[in-house]
Design a protein around this nucleic acid. Sequence first.
DNA 1: GGTATTTATAAAGATTTCTTTAAAAACTAG
DNA 2: CTAGTTTTTAAAGAAATCTTTATAAATACC
Lengths: 183, 183
Amino acid sequence: MPEVIVENIVASTSFSDKLDLDVIAQSLEEAEYEPEQFPGLVYRLSNPKTATLLFRSGKANCTGAKNIEDVRTTINIIAEKLKKLNVDVYKNPEIVIQNIVAISDLGGELNLNEVAMALGLENVEYEPEQFPGLVYRIKEPKVAMLLFGSGKIVCTGARKIADVSLAVEKLSQELTSLGLIHH
Amino acid sequence: MPEVIVENIVASTSFSDKLDLDVIAQSLEEAEYEPEQFPGLVYRLSNPKTATLLFRSGKANCTGAKNIEDVRTTINIIAEKLKKLNVDVYKNPEIVIQNIVAISDLGGELNLNEVAMALGLENVEYEPEQFPGLVYRIKEPKVAMLLFGSGKIVCTGARKIADVSLAVEKLSQELTSLGLIHH
DNA sequence: GGTATTTATAAAGATTTCTTTAAAAACTAG
DNA sequence: CTAGTTTTTAAAGAAATCTTTATAAATACC
């Protein structure tokens, strides 16, 4: 049972039906807003350490949180700031987790060329001179995993922590049964 | 007799008694001129590969040449370009070599801690965690040399190639007599 | 009057940034 | 309509940049 550590959660929500980003950029000094470069306003919090993108539609994306509680805290803090700017924010904004990035460790080293052959070249992407990790995508749960020679792995694309665990478990069992994890 | 290879020559000259850098910046597209950042206009040539700084006083610095002929060629090319912009350039501008950077190889490895002790801690600067080279300055000729564990050295500060050779020769003989060059 | 700004250049370590993956948002460009 | 723009994050390896030295020039800064 490889332990899974969540490193990043991307979640979306909606604060209102519209936001005047120019006013927000002026009021919140730490805000970064360069509309000609990107339509969203970037607002970073140091605690929890997150970065949230606010859009004119009132929608927003929170990134950087390592647990769901921090996502909720971030959104509540920003909602309070918006209230003070007289924005009529929604009472209980729905928060949707869009992506979870997590790491784990298979507990042994991998010969990625060997793994690529065993999993089937049509199922993986492995170009060591471009990137040291092997990309392995599975459909259920729908995630992409990056496998490294050290045995460490990165799992991204899941929307539930349970799916991260499931994906890692499947990978671990498959590689174990193929005898590809070298201790 | 360690071979000396000149890597960079910095030379100064004067094209005229004044230059309108704004006009030059407009006319020569490849010119870089940001007066609020630096008063000189940067003009690079691909052949010889050099970078010359032009100032409003008409003076200029040529950098990057690996031999004196390339310094002269660079200055002649720029003088011709200025003539075409109706600048009344001097006929035979005096060229003064201000600095020569060269490398050489002592032919054996050095234990820099050992070298620092032998040359005298008051005569060298050696802080390996800040920079891997040992700095050794001599008065005659007045140059600064950077010594590396590999035995390779960098000599800078000389205004004549003969002085580079002389400095390297002095260093080589001193270290050899002290038995510090390990083959 | 010192220091900073800029340019080039080598040396050999240290450090930083880049590579890849996923996802949402909204806006531009082809 | 698709691709790129931005944000975050880990992994490991490559690549880029930083460190130091000298030197002129002309500005700004303290």
